[in-house]
């Protein structure tokens, strides 16, 4: 086993170009577990821990660019939490404080687990993933195209997630998740809901109930007319219908964590609650 520890982005891209068989190691909260359990063979790893550029975030106009190795702790605290509240709420539900100090948003994207907690939020925000490689340079991929399937992303060999760009929207945001306890759980179902007051609509995405994060298009269309914009007034019946339509977008499976039936029900309840929280009677 070899671990390369580049200290800047160019060094990381060069290392990946030189060793196309290398695996990128960010916070290690998924990869190290696989290694410790013998589910992954030792090989060549490129550690991003010392690459400073990837740890930073910036705001230009109404857009944030969040570096790939910004941790969940970084997302749940300070300015990012105020600017993109749903991302902070999702980050707060990940693992434990020790895990949140290590795990990164770029790792969540590149691992592309169906249960990745930031992924439904990024989907609802129509985030853009910035990727880079030594040979092809930078490219930007919509998060919807980036997440290809369970643990599969659009990353090419030798390519790295550099950052993710998300809009700063006006209006409330919610992230709700169901698990077996309040910490240290892999999500059974998750719902991200963001309001876009400027455009007069809601955007809703689901986690852990499909091969990747799924958008609830029918529920979004319904909310465009069922909610009064910009006052965000809606009836209690609208909340029930929004929950029902959102559950209709889920494509859950039975597995060791929950049944498909339970997951669909959890989505319906979470979507209804999230809708009630972002709208006014």
């Amino acid at each position: 086993m070899t671990v390369l520890a580049p200290t800047d982005l160019d060094g990381a891209l060069a290392a990946l170009a030189e060793r196309p068989d290398a695996t990128v190691l960010a916070g290690g909260t998924d990869l190290m577990v696989e290694l410790n359990f013998g589910h992954r063979r030792a090989g060549v790893f490129v550690s991003l821990r010392r690459v400073r550029e990837l740890r930073e975030w910036s705001r230009v106009g109404d857009e944030l660019t969040i570096g790939a190795t910004v941790t969940y702790t970084g997302l749940e605290r300070g300015q990012i939490a105020t600017l993109v509240p749903a991302l902070a709420q999702a980050a707060r539900t990940v693992g434990s404080p020790q895990i949140r100090n290590a795990g990164t948003i770029g790792g969540n994207l590149a691992t592309a687990s169906p249960a990745g907690d930031t992924l439904p939020v990024l989907s609802a925000l129509d985030a853009v993933v910035v990727c880079a490689s030594a040979s092809a340079g930078r490219r930007e991929v919509s998060v919807h195209d980036f997440l290809v399937g369970p643990k599969r992303s659009a990353l090419a060999a030798g390519e790295l997630v550099v950052a993710v760009r998300v809009p700063v929207l006006s209006g409330p945001q919610e992230f709700l998740k169901v698990g077996t306890r309040n910490a240290m759980v892999i999500s059974i179902a998750g719902v991200a809901l963001v309001t876009d007051a400027a455009r007069g609509g809601l955007r809703c995405a689901l986690g852990s109930v499909g091969p990747t994060a799924l958008r609830a298009a029918d529920a979004e269309s319904f909310a465009a007319t069922a909610v009064e914009w910009p006052s965000r007034r809606a009836t209690p019946e609208a909340a029930i219908e929004f929950g029902r339509l959102t559950a209709g977008a889920a494509r859950p499976i039975d597995d060791h964590r929950a049944t498909a039936h339970y997951r669909r029900h959890a989505v319906e309840v979470c979507a209804r609650r999230a809708f009630e929280r972002v709208t006014l009677r």
Binding site: V3, G28, T29, M32, N36, S47, Q98, A102
Partner: peptide, 12 residues
């Protein structure tokens, strides 16, 4: 920062 030392490689 508090982290799990079983999930960090010494070389990292």
């Amino acid at each position: 920062e508090a982290v799990r030392s079983c999930l960090v490689l010494a070389v990292q």
